[in-house]
Simulated scan of single mutants.
Amino acid sequence: MLATHAQRGPWRPYLDRLLTCALGAPAAASLCTDFVIFDGGAAKQFLADRGHLLRADERELLRGWLTMPLDVYECAPAGAAR
């Protein structure tokens, strides 16, 4: 539901732009979506607008996720030594 909300809401232009930059890296698509959901505010807006559609435990889980800082991902080409 969160991903659909981000893909259809006012965040769509930002998500499209991020996905365009990630062309050729299919694994990056989920990172772009996560960025829009959590750092871009889609999850917070979803909770305010549609939180009632979630079970109580799901609402609490999402509230908990929103208190966590966005972490940095390390991106490396497939098969690259670390």
Rank of each mutant, 00 (worst) to 15 (best):
P69Q: 01
K44N: 08
T4Y: 12
C32K: 05
L54Y: 03
P10V: 08
A81G: 11
G41Q: 08
T20R: 15
A80T: 11
L47G: 02
G51C: 05
E60W: 06
L2K: 02
G51L: 06
L70H: 12
K44S: 11
D39L: 08
L2Q: 03
M1W: 11
K44F: 05
G79T: 00
T20I: 10
H52S: 10
H52C: 06
P26V: 00
D71F: 10
G64E: 06
H5R: 09
D71Y: 11
P26W: 06
G9E: 06
L62H: 03
E74P: 07
G24I: 01
A80E: 06
G9F: 04
R59S: 03
Q7N: 09
L66I: 09
A29N: 08
I37Y: 02
R50P: 07
A25R: 15
V72I: 06
D57K: 05
A25S: 13
R8D: 08
A6L: 01
L23Q: 15
Q45S: 04
L15T: 10
A76T: 05
Q45R: 04
A29F: 03
R50N: 13
G40A: 00
W65G: 06
F35D: 11
P13K: 04
H5P: 04
A78S: 13
M68S: 08
G79P: 05
P77D: 09
A76M: 15
A76C: 13
A80V: 02
P69H: 09
Q7W: 03
G79F: 08
R55G: 09
M68Y: 12
C32G: 07
A81F: 07
D57C: 07
L61T: 03
Y14H: 15
R8F: 14
Y14K: 15
A27G: 12
A43E: 00
F35Q: 08
M68H: 15
R55E: 12
R50I: 00
A6H: 02
A28D: 08
F38Q: 09
A48F: 12
E74V: 14
